[in-house]
Simulated scan of single mutants.
Amino acid sequence: MARSKGFRSGENPVTAIKDAGALPKVKAKVKRHSAMGWQDVPAFYAELQTRPAMAAKALMFTCLTGSRTGEVLGARWEEFDFEERLWTCPAERMKTGEEHRIPLTDEMIAIIEPLKAMQSDYVFEGQKRNNPLSNMSMLMLLRRMTVKDATVHGLRSTFRD
C-alpha cells in the first residue's frame, strides 16, 4: 500500500524474509464449539418441544437439519418446495459458497408449516416484522434451559459424534 501511494519504491522488504523462511510459522489453533453429548440430545429435544417460542422452533429445525445458525435463521419461504419435500439453501448463504439441498422430513415440515400463517418473508421471524430471528436467540434459549457447556454450532458436532 505504501508503494502504491508513492511513499516507498522497490519491493516489499518482508518478501525476502518470508521467502527465506526466517520467521517461524504460526499456526492458529482451531477453537471448537462446545458440543452436547449425543446421549443428552433426546431429553434436550423433548424439552424443546414443550416450548412455544420461535427460538425453540428454530433450534429444533437446526437440530433436525444439522444446519448452521445463519442458514436456518436466514431461511426464506421461497427456498422451500413442500411438494418435493426439499429445502434449497442458496450458495450465497452457505459457508462453502455452494447451494445445499436438504430433504424435509415429516418432523421438519411439522415445525415450519404452521409458521406460514405469519406471512413473513422469513420462516423464523424475529421481533421486527419481516426480519429474521436474532442470531443470539437460540444461544440464549440454551442458556435459559441451563445448557451451559454447549453452543448451537456445537450441536453440529454432536450429530457427527
Score class of each variant (00 low, 15 high):
73 L>G: 07
129 R>G: 09
23 L>N: 02
82 F>W: 05
100 H>G: 09
57 K>P: 13
7 F>P: 03
46 A>G: 11
78 E>A: 14
20 A>V: 12
85 R>L: 11
120 S>D: 02
107 E>R: 07
39 Q>T: 09
130 N>T: 02
18 K>H: 15
120 S>C: 00
98 E>C: 06
74 G>K: 00
123 V>H: 03
11 E>G: 14
160 R>V: 14
156 R>E: 12
92 E>Q: 09
132 P>K: 00
100 H>L: 11
148 K>Y: 12
14 V>R: 10
51 R>I: 15
142 L>K: 11
41 V>H: 04
32 R>Q: 12
139 L>F: 08
12 N>R: 04
84 E>R: 15
39 Q>Y: 06
72 V>W: 06
120 S>R: 00
36 M>G: 09
96 T>R: 08
140 M>T: 09
161 D>W: 03
65 T>E: 08
24 P>L: 00
137 S>W: 07
36 M>Y: 09
70 G>I: 05
30 V>G: 11
25 K>T: 15
140 M>L: 10
144 R>D: 09
135 N>Y: 01
136 M>F: 02
7 F>C: 00
32 R>D: 14
37 G>N: 11
45 Y>M: 02
108 M>V: 06
121 D>C: 07
95 K>M: 04
112 I>E: 08
17 I>N: 12
86 L>K: 15
147 V>C: 03
77 W>M: 05
9 S>L: 03
159 F>Y: 11
44 F>P: 11
89 C>R: 13
135 N>P: 12
118 M>K: 08
8 R>V: 03
104 L>N: 13
84 E>L: 15
17 I>P: 13
111 I>W: 05
15 T>I: 14
122 Y>G: 05
140 M>E: 12
17 I>H: 11
124 F>C: 02
15 T>S: 14
82 F>G: 07
85 R>G: 13
124 F>V: 03
59 L>R: 01
150 A>T: 04
90 P>S: 08
149 D>W: 05
45 Y>P: 08
20 A>P: 15
143 R>V: 01
69 T>A: 02
154 G>Y: 03
126 G>T: 04
104 L>R: 11
4 S>H: 12
120 S>E: 01
52 P>R: 05
128 K>L: 13
90 P>W: 06
77 W>L: 02
127 Q>K: 10
